[in-house]
Amino acid sequence: MSINATLLIQMIAFVLLIWFVNKVLWAPLSKLMEDRQKKIADGLSAAEKGKHELELAEQKAKEVLKDAKTQAQNILGQAEKRGSEIVEDAKVKAAEEADRIKASAQAEIEQEVSRAREGLRKEVASIAISGAEKILAKEVDAATHNDMLETLVKSI
């Protein structure tokens, strides 16, 4: 176990090996591990951010939902109001229409009655004339006694 020139060779070998290990093992692998750590840290912070954003979105969704509900309530209320208005309107219109129809019917009836009365009057006049003819057994000139007959008819 003597110390000899091997010492120098081993020193050179050691220094070279340090250089090589740094070059091919330490530098690439530690860079990779650092990158991975950074990636994980980034991922974690992104997840944290995502969670926060999700919370915000949930809150927003709740607000929107609440808004929608009140709006729906409003619309429903309005619709109800409008519906009852329409019904009310229809009722009024229907009543008016009924009145109108009733009035026109009344007018027609009256017209019919007066027409029937006229017809009857004429009939009575002719019956009266023919009756008078029979009673008198003599020709009564319809034309000459027309005026008298007219008066007679009217008085009936």
Binding site: S2, A5, Q10
Partner: peptide, 18 residues
């Protein structure tokens, strides 16, 4: 003992391991 000599086995094996 002498300084001007090389231990070939030591050098070869340590180099191979390196």
């Amino acid at each position: 003992m002498t300084f001007w000599a090389l231990n070939l086995d030591t050098i070869a094996i340590s180099f191979l391991i390196g």
